[in-house]
Amino acid sequence: MVDGLLLVVDDDNDILSLIKIGLEKMGLSVYSFTDPSLALEEFSKKPSDYELVISDIRMPSMNGYEFVKQIKKINPKVNVILMTAFEIEDKEFHSILPLITIDGFLQKPFTMAKLNDILKEIM
């Protein structure tokens, strides 16, 4: 269903590998980073090769909103999914949403089946 590359960012290494393995088992090619700045650097090298970016929201060096904003600046066509284990405050989310188009949202903990469903929906 996806031909291009996927970029996954989460500062928690266990979660990051879990999502990477899960996606690879679905037959997708995945690059993963714990540091959003490094992910951004990688993304800017070949922005049009990426089809989907999945990012955590709260990360120490750069938050997910800022990260996907940068991503969209480089390639507005790329799909974006945000995820978090925190509560999403409606106010926070709606104040950001008009500024960035987000294609999907995952509230942790989610099952791999749920991840698969949301990918099918987007692609």
Partner: peptide, 25 residues
């Protein structure tokens, strides 16, 4: 506080749930 507890409970649950699902697959 609730938000913090939520994060601390959900993160390990995510790991356990996901890895068990992978093992099951």
């Amino acid at each position: 506080f609730i938000n913090l507890v939520a994060h601390e409970l959900r993160t390990p649950t995510q790991a356990v749930l996901g890895y068990m699902e992978l093992a099951l697959m």
